[in-house]
C-alpha cells in the first residue's frame, strides 16, 4: 500500500518533469533568430518581432519567474486596477461564498419542502427543469439590468448556478428517504420538526452534500467567467486583464491558482461529505 502511494507519487513527479522538459525544449527551439531590422526599429518592438517572428508561447522558466513574482507579493494594493493575485483570489472566493451560501440557504429548505410534498414537487418541477439548463452567464445581462450593481449581479449569477444542483439533490434526497425510517419516527410520535432534523436531514445529507459539491464546482467555474465579463476585481478579472496585456505567463499562473483553489474547495466539501455519509 505504502509503496504503491510512493510509486504513484514518483510517477506523478516524473510526468511533471517530462512535461516541463518538453515544454522548455520546444519553447527554446523556436526563438533565437538574428535581427532582421535596424536598431531603431528593434527598440520599438518586442524581441521576437525584431527577428521577424511572433512573440512565442512562454517557456516554463518564464512562467516560473512570473509565478514567483506573483507569489512573493500576493496581497499588494497599488490602485483600483492594480492588486495582487491573492487579493483577486480573495475577492472571487468571497463572491463565490456569498452566492453559494445564499443558494444553500434558499435551496436546502425549499428543496426540503419540495421533497416532502409530491404536490409541490409536481408543481415546481417544470420550472426547475426549464431554468436549470440555462447557462448562468446568460443571466448576467438580465441581472445587471435589474439589480443595477455588478458585484451583486455576479453574486446573483453564482446563486443561480449553484442553486439547482442543491435544490434538486435536496428534493431528491428528501423524497427518497426510506419509508421505514420515517415510519420509525412516526411510531415514536416524533414531531415534524424533530423528524425533519433528526431523521430526514441526516438521511438525505449525503445526497444534499453531493449536490453542494457539484454546486461549488460550477460556482467556481462560473465566477471566473463572470468576472471576465464584468471586471473590476477577482481572479477572472485578473485573467482578463493579463489577456489584455497578452501576458500568457500571468494567465498560466492564474490558471494554476484557479485550479488549486477549485481543488481545495472541492476537497473541503468532500471531507464534509465524508462526515455525513453513512453505510446502510
Amino acid at each position: 500500500m505504502r509503496s504503491l502511494a510512493l510509486r504513484s507519487a514518483l510517477l506523478s513527479a516524473a510526468i511533471f518533469l517530462l512535461f516541463i522538459g518538453i515544454w522548455q525544449v520546444s519553447s527554446m527551439s523556436g526563438g533565437g533568430g538574428s535581427q532582421v531590422v535596424d536598431d531603431e526599429y528593434a527598440r520599438l518592438v518586442g524581441a521576437a518581432a525584431a527577428t521577424g517572428q511572433k512573440t512565442p508561447f512562454p517557456s516554463p522558466s518564464e512562467v516560473g519567474a512570473k509565478l514567483w513574482q506573483h507569489l512573493s507579493d500576493p496581497f499588494y494594493v497599488r490602485g483600483t486596477n492594480d492588486m495582487g493575485i491573492g487579493i483577486q483570489l480573495a475577492y472571487s472566493i468571497a463572491r463565490v461564498a456569498g452566492g453559494y451560501l445564499l443558494a444553500a440557504a434558499f435551496a436546502i429548505p425549499v428543496g426540503f419542502l419540495i421533497g416532502m410534498s409530491p404536490l409541490l414537487y409536481g408543481a415546481l418541477n417544470p420550472y426547475i427543469q426549464i431554468l436549470r439548463p440555462i447557462s448562468p452567464l446568460a443571466w448576467m445581462p438580465l441581472a445587471l439590468y435589474t439589480i443595477k450593481d455588478s458585484s451583486i449581479s455576479s453574486i446573483f449569477v453564482i446563486f443561480i448556478c449553484s442553486v439547482w444542483p442543491m435544490l434538486i439533490n435536496t428534493a431528491f434526497g428528501v423524497a427518497s428517504v426510506r419509508r421505514e425510517w420515517t415510519n420509525v419516527a412516526r411510531t415514536l410520535e416524533v414531531g415534524p420538526l424533530r423528524t425533519a432534523f433528526r431523521v430526514i436531514l441526516p438521511a438525505a445529507a449525503p445526497t444534499i452534500m453531493t449536490g453542494m459539491r457539484i454546486s461549488i464546482g460550477i460556482a467556481w467555474l462560473v465566477i471566473v467567467a463572470a468576472e471576465m465579463l464584468v471586471g473590476g476585481t477577482g481572479i477572472g478579472y485578473f485573467v482578463w486583464n493579463e489577456w489584455n496585456n497578452l501576458s500568457l505567463s500571468s494567465i498560466l499562473v492564474a490558471i494554476l491558482s484557479i485550479g488549486l483553489v477549485g481543488m481545495a474547495l472541492d476537497q473541503g466539501l468532500a471531507r464534509l461529505t465524508r462526515l455525513v455519509t453513512y453505510q446502510e
Binding site: T80, N81, P141, L144, Y145, K148, D149, S150, M228, L229, V230, G231, G232, Y237, W240, N241
Partner: peptide, 20 residues
Amino acid sequence: AEVVRTAGWAVIRDKTLNKE
C-alpha cells in the same frame, strides 16, 4: 475620483446606466 478599468463597452454602458 477613482478610475476603474472595465472589461468591455457593453459593461461600461450597463455600469453607467446602473449608476455604478
